[in-house]
Write a protein that binds this DNA or RNA. Structure first.
Lengths: 214, 214, 214, 214
DNA sequence: AATGAATGAGAGTTCATTCAT
DNA sequence: TATGAATGAACTCTCATTCAT
């Protein structure tokens, strides 16, 4: 049913729908995000939706894919210019937290994907982790990090740290109260406090066995 | 309106409902877990549900509370007898992963809670983290871990590590493929592979600055 | 199923239920008055209800019957001592309005009876009207009112006047705003303003052709 | 969410629903008039209802509004051409009773509105009464009716008379038995018997103090 | 390409009534 | 006499999806 648009006008409509979907999914969650809401937000008629996406699930998965591409891009871009492994990591995390602050949709949507589209959920995490694994592999080869570190495991450890710290300090805000019951949409838009970030990075540095090396 | 049961028979029915809810929520997620499904699983009529819970949300929140109590109990119990901080941590994580393997509901349900009941979600994480903070504080006082470690931050770091490693190796299974699209119910029930666990613990040990101690 | 109580304790329970029913029906209307609410208001268990009334409809009809008896009693009592027809009418209306002010339930319940129990509704009106017919017949025989007045018709005319004036000024209150959308329960408890009552009575006096007679 | 139809097809569907609602509400009363019944009577699917009305209450209120407009139109039309006040009144009542006979829904629905939508109930009566007040005011100015008559009170008196006589003779039928328990739907469709109407009008004439005038 | 009316299955929830205790 | 747990049919309302225009 769905199809790639064949005209410029169609292209525009399709992207309006995707943008609306990010907004609506992040505000309401998958279950409560209705097609009506999405099409209303996009300013098109209900039926138009099915010209570009064959189902609610399809647009959801495409959205995750999209956000995943963008967050990885943001991380890579942030790390550009860094030379040491730990500097790359530091800049990468900064990029990640910045993206999270600007796109709370990422968290909200991904967490819900557990039931909606496990496939997408795994793909999302796996792709980010792959980047870590590659980087850690290089660092290991160059002796920057401990020889007994297994990148395939430690990559997930780093992912978990970023995920939880981001949730706690970026999404919930500094006091951990933002976005409480009344307004689950609200979310801190500032990033992780410096002290927290430093503590986190020190822990990672020690964990990677980077510091005392020649 | 919901109400506490006044008879033994009522008590039994109520607990059958809670048990059924854990099963159904973990299999279908909050959105797709209908009251019909829950009452069918409990073997009672639809209306009976509302004798004990005033809404789907109420039983959901009670369930999170319940699972939270149990996972903390499991962690504490596992750590009993351990003497050094790192040993406590190690046993605690083992208890956590074991509980996760036996109650995949915990993960699946909590992750969805982001939209359904942010309040419960935060309470859940915060309670577990509190335990970490207390333990880390003691360890710091006794000089077991580095003096420059801030328990209030590192606790969340540990939480994130456990969360992600648990998801990757306990929930998804060893190959990371279990529970793919076709059968989202299936899940590894074995725990984290030894090699992975060791890697994780070594990282944590180094991170806490415990290693060089006698 | 229902039955007359056989003990004093039963008698008490039954009357507690009737009293609770008047309260609840008048507050919520028939449709929204649940048995639970009635039994709660009466302070007994749900099942107890069916010991004394076989259904919701039964207690409703009994209540109308009861209120009907009481309003007629109130009217008769008020008219005691009056000698001329028009004085009897005047005092009767005063009694009616006073009762209405004290028992808004009467109006609310009777008006709803249209669909719930047409039988009761008609019986209610017919009984009150019968009193009027009898009185008007006497007055006609004694030449107090016009010879061309047909009591069987004029009685309903009087009923209508009392009903509408009572609704407008007793139930709605002086400004006609009381009990608006927000709080349909509230109701004026004062009676009809003197000027309104006088206007109404003058109209009736003229209508009955009472005034200029010897 | 309800919405105004944007096409002719939608317009048609909406009016089918309103017509069905009049039928169903008048047959079953508000409480028992389910959306299923209304949509079945209209020949559309259940969900279609909510395309045009946001709730059962909304269509109910719109219906009262509609019937109110029509009954006032019927009364005005009937009175066209009448010159004296009493002739206007006479023709107006005839129009009212005729409308009542053709649309028993009006009575049945309005009487139930006491609990369902007090706002609508009051608006309905108030609007009709306003017409009376205006007419009586004119008649008073021109000396057609007694100088001591207060239109603001007598208007409600007339309303009450019409209401009760209409209920007794139009709705219940000549013998006052129609529409008893077995078949609450049935209702007299003929109008008020001539004798009754004459008696009523004579009473009103005397009451207004119109008789002795040229 | 775009519209928006229509569908109907399924959701959460309420409640009069029954019955074992 | 009294309890309160249990029932299940019925309710209002939502929504992904289809299709004629």
């Amino acid at each position: 049913m769905s199809d790639a648009p064949r005209t410029a006008r169609g292209e525009l409509t399709r992207s309006k729908l995707l943008e609306a979907a990010e907004k609506v999914f992040s505000e309401c969650g998958y279950a409560d995000a209705s097609i009506v809401r999405i099409t209303e937000a996009a300013g098109v008629a209900q039926g138009t939706f099915y010209l570009y996406f064959s189902s609610k699930l399809e647009i959801f998965e495409e959205l995750i894919e999209d956000l995943n591409r963008r967050v990885r891009h943001a991380m890579a871009e942030a790390a550009e210019g860094a030379t040491t492994r730990i500097e790359i990591e530091r800049q990468g995390f900064l990029g990640f937290f910045r993206f999270t602050a600007e796109h709370p949709a990422l968290y909200r949507i991904v967490r819900e994907a557990e039931f909606v589209s496990p496939k997408s959920l795994r793909l999302h995490y796996t792709r980010i982790v792959s980047g870590y694994i590659a980087g850690l592999g290089n660092a290991k080869d160059s002796g920057e990090i401990g020889a007994d570190v297994d990148p395939a495991v430690v990559a997930w450890v780093l992912m978990g740290i970023g995920e939880m710290v981001g949730m706690r300090w970026v999404l919930w805000g500094e006091d951990g109260q933002t976005g409480a019951d009344d307004d689950p949409t609200a979310s801190g838009t500032s990033s992780v406090p410096e002290h927290v970030f430093d503590q986190m990075m020190s822990f990672i540095e020690r964990g990677l066995g980077t510091q005392g090396r020649p």
